[in-house]
């Protein structure tokens, strides 16, 4: 089971950037892609705890700002040999709210 959480307004996240939020007790980096989609992944890089919300992104990956480790925003897989990061389903609802689904324990 997972629950949907409204996290922020779309306008709170500049296009092409990410912001970190605490959702249901979990640290999540939420990104607003330039193509309009929303992506949500764990907030810290598994390599050295870098803040992924501060990373550069494109429509598929985020690059950690500390050591340039790269992760697929949809699958969480690393292109640079790190363990995969957690991903969360996320979308924009009709009212302009960013909704992130977090599994319930």
């Amino acid at each position: 089971m997972s629950a949907e959480h409204p996290v922020a307004r779309a306008d709170d996240i500049p296009v092409g950037e990410g912001r970190a939020h605490v959702v249901a007790g979990q640290q999540i980096a939420v990104f607003r892609l330039r193509d309009g989609r929303i992506r949500a992944v764990q907030a810290t890089c598994p390599h050295a705890g870098g803040p992924l919300a501060d990373g550069l992104i494109d429509d598929t990956v985020v690059i950690c700002p500390l050591h340039n480790h790269t992760f697929d925003l949809a699958t969480g897989c690393s292109a640079t040999g790190q363990p995969a990061i957690r991903t969360y389903p996320a979308h924009l609802d009709d009212n302009g709210n960013i909704i992130v689904s977090v599994p319930q324990p």
């Binding site: 306008d11 500049p14 912001r19 980096a29 501060d54």
Partner: peptide, 9 residues
């Protein structure tokens, strides 16, 4: 928006 928002909550 949130230019100086912390990324490590």
């Amino acid at each position: 928006p949130g230019q100086f928002r912390t990324a490590l909550p």
